[in-house]
Amino acid sequence: MNDEMGNKVIIAENLTKKFGNFTAVDHITFEVERGEIFGFLGANGAGKTTAMRMFCGLSRPTEGKGSVGGFDVRTQAEQIKKNIGYMSQKFSLYEDLKVWENIRLFAGIYGVKEGEIKSRSEELLHRLGLYEERDSFVKSLPLGWKQKLAFSVAIFHHPKIVFLDEPTGGVDPIARRQFWELIYEAADQGITIFVTTHYMDEAEYCNRVSIMVDGRIDALDTPRNLKEQFGTTDMDGVFRALARKAKRGD
């Protein structure tokens, strides 16, 4: 870890990814601080997923620099993977495994000690109100519960940063609200949250929001400042004003 970087856990400097002639991510530059909830917005095809893959060490940048948790995305992908959690837009848990089997599997993958797994997973199951369901197959849980469980599993090993790729797709506003309570709890413990979403009400919950258009970051500020800057009353207005300029579609 480099002390000079202090509290900055994600740094992107002109980070670029090209596939042939197509520039999926076009020189993006930003920083995310420790414990921050950072919203990463953009229309479909704007380049969010590609950018996220670079931060997770799955994809090497074509140009520019990036670091996550103090590790270089180009050369230290393995260290990055140990220090992040990840929950994808598609469902992250195994439907044909029981609740406790899923927790144990992922805890084991991330190297949580055998003795700790048991006590911590019991504590977690009680906290989520899922203790009675520990022997149920994940496929039998309601979607909202599955997502809460998936998030809890993603931060089970106390990562520095957790990447959430459209974590709340398909659930009602109440379940989303409950999900965000978990996110706030995690942020209070010092875990940095990097979240992509399609829901503009969720964008309001973030500390800061960036909006990607055609591979570039066209706006980056707190939700309040962005609304002021674009003269609208909600994030939806900001998003539409920017998305209108987009040349790439789905």
């Binding site: 997770c56 060490g57 799955l58 393995e78 993977k81 140990k82 992040i84 990840y86 929950m87 994808s88 837009q89 598609k90 469902f91 992250s92 848990l93 195994y94 439907e95 992922f106 993958i109 991330y110 190297g111 990447f163």
Partner: peptide, 13 residues
């Protein structure tokens, strides 16, 4: 297809 491969690849395994 289900998307769990992505989760495994992001993990340190």
């Amino acid at each position: 297809e289900v998307g769990t491969m992505e989760v495994l690849l992001v993990s340190p395994s």
